[in-house]
Nucleic acid binder design. Sequence first.
RNA 1: GCCGAUGUGGCGAAACCGGUAGACGCAACAGACUUAAAAUCUGUUUUUGGGAAACCAGAGUGCGGGUUCGAGUCCCGCCAUCGGCACCA
Length: 859
Amino acid sequence: MTSDQQRKAFPFSDFEPRWQDAWEAAKAFRTPNPGDADFDASKPKFFVLDMFPYPSGAGLHVGHPEGYTATDIIGRFKKMTGHNVLHPMGWDAFGLPAEQYAIKTGQHPRATTEKNIAGFRGQLKRLGFAYDWDREVNTTDPGYFKWTQWIFLKLYNSYVNDEGKARPVSELEAQGLSRDEIDARRLAYVSEAPVNWCPELGTVLANEEVIDGKSEVGGHPVERRPMRQWMLRITAFAQRLIDELDGLDWPEGIRLLQRNWIGRSEGAEVKFKVLSAQCSDLSVTVFTTRPDTLFGATYMVLAPEHSLVDQIVTEEQLSAVETYRERTARKSDLERTELAKEKSGVFTGAFAINPVNDARIPIWIADYVLLGYGTGAIMAVPGHDERDFEFAKKFELPIKQVVQPPEGKDWQGYTDNGITTNSGFLDGLSTLDAKHHITTWLEEKHLGKGTVNFKLRDWLFSRQRYWGEPFPIVWEDGKHRAIPESELPLQPPTLEDFKPTGTPEPPLSKATDWVRYSATATRELNTMPQWAGSCWYYLRYCDAKNSDRFVGEAAEQYWMGGGKPGGVDLYVGGTEHAVLHLLYARFWHKVLFDLGYVSTPEPFQRLVNQGLIMGEDGQKMSKSRGNVVNPDDVVDEYGADSLRLYEMFMGPLEQVKPWSMKGVEGVYRFLARVWRLVMETNQEGEWSFSASLQDAPADKKLNKVLHETIKKCGEDIEKLSFNTAIAQMMVLTNAFTQSAVRPVGALVTFLKVLSPFAPHLAEELFAIIREKFPQHVPGGFAADCTWPSYDPAALIEDEVEIVVQVNGKLRDRLTVARDASKDAIEKLALAAPKAQEFIAGQPVKKVIVVPGKLVNIVV
RNA sequence: GCCGAUGUGGCGAAACCGGUAGACGCAACAGACUUAAAAUCUGUUUUUGGGAAACCAGAGUGCGGGUUCGAGUCCCGCCAUCGGCACCA
């Protein structure tokens, strides 16, 4: 034994790597698939999924093992309770950071990515996770992204029918639609709209990747500019993405976040005639959620970019309008939000006619109206809308009351429901009734209609970067078309210089040979965003090696369809993906479901968010604060089991909690105590089998704690309440420590309960005990044994302690027989000396008896 | 501003359906072992007052009310911290 190991409280650094090697050599965690010889179809399935990591150069962070340990414990537990468990791991390895890191270090992203993956894999293996490594996926592997491209082609070749279902575009061909008409309905389509262009990153970004006008990656400024881009028609699924959240076992907060992001609002479109010197037959349609306030519209606002502005602007206002439009166009989104407090705008000189009362109202342009939402035009009701109110005050526009608020409230700027007033035929109606009434009226007169709008925009799906999946698309005569599936995977060209060009021209344009598809056709030069690979990786895990299909049918049906209601049974990850990955993946999954490729409409049945781990100082861990904890250091000093156990013991999984090295030492000492239940050390520091471990039955007290522990740990694992399960195991360990004779049978049972949490220690002690007491230790690995069942009889005490309260205050305690009657308990309680003292001769008004718990005497 | 989550010892936290608040761990203190220290084992540890002590009495789960025999838990009104959204008509 080395001196290094003598310093350790138990020899984890010897046995942890030894068992990791043994498990790997034996493929101890291989999960058979339907069709495999050793597959047992009679067992229920359990698919437990981690959000796969982005393999950065910085290596594993202590936040990673938090969720991974939780899923590992529950996966191991489910296996021990007779389930087929799918618990895989992989790498989300395309994306901006890898490319930037490669540029910075002068290496190819393929090389840095492979190095980073090897680093991550090594770190995860050191933690003893029960992954089936045969199912490892890597989004940058051609065998993987072949199918990402294949799914893209499914999107490209689909449209959404009248029932809101994705169907192949061949149906539209059959209906005789033209090429252009079909292109306009594809789920993957080309658009020229203004997009979020980030000059620093040299790429466009999705709305979800822009935060406060800056890029989510790196925090660089983002500007709007019109560019030709690939879009995915996620908006066609907006309603289903809201509705189908209802059946999911997700944290309410995340569902709400998605609902708000999709942002459904019900209202009406109203058509206003425009008075214009130049044209006679002009009109503007506005969207409003408050059609009931139509009589209160005192002006109208168009988005500055609105196409109608040019046609209606008067000569006197032309230069003011032009100046304002230029100023707005130059503003980045960031500036537009920063200036949100101060309203700005310009009168166009034109007027519109309010269809309900023929009132002539001025038309303004202002950047508080967004082109991309609704119709890009609003009717302003300053009396009952906060923004319109502010604007009207600033520009001295008329403010009119049309809603009567409840007693005692000022009507100016009152935005809630009330009674409609000053509104002709709507007077006296409640807001809700007035909305219905006016909508029907507008529809009858063909002046408008009820509509639903969503905040969600179509998903901007192309990036001007090198390190991503190339689109399986070629261009010819200005038209796009898919390449044949037989040409997949379409590999990116090998480029020495893959830096962004500094212009919207993607780096792939530099690969001139690759770009030329045929004499007349050239390849699409954009690449897909990082989210593409993570939209379907959980499906690939079901059948990771399949080269004929993105996932085999039998495998998909078993792992995703089996059980009720199907899908991934438990998905654990951080909140940061609430509106990105989790929304995108649901969208792709629904398309695949409609097309008949997967069995369920939703991919992730149960979602749990792990809480952030903060630094010891209570601040977010960051290099600049110097409070980052490296999991490798923790494993070196205390072992993998200690790291696993500590992260689970810190507090509830979902909670934000600070790191504490002292806390790690605490669980380390606990594991050492467990070790010393079996092993003892002599003066030289050599370990030998403990004499107190004997083949004897457990006494009643110890047996009770043992069975309580089996019961509580099983229940707590199901609830993901790992901290309390560990506390209970500590109680049991203390009981073993205090008992002079340690019954080997009971101890082995305890080790089974401990094994999902601290698999290395459990495995090592199994092996040690097996040498001396082979009859008490099952064969195979600890992970293969059956979860012990508890004996309800062992939990029952003959006598129970009853608390005696007088007027709700604790005054005495009694010990009574377990099955003592209510009457008997009441008599004993009234006779208790301390109770007597506090009753002090007063008449007893009432006595409440809770059997097994307490008696409350009311005087 | 809106939405969500969380407030319990010196610290991380427990407490099932309303029924003994503080399990378990950390830190601290004391004792045992040791020439000594570390490690280990055994205690004590919410707080205030009284007592040499076992113990006794009062207060106590962010604040203020309420329901109840009984509230950390349920209801009403506040406050604070964290996270998200933020001109979406």
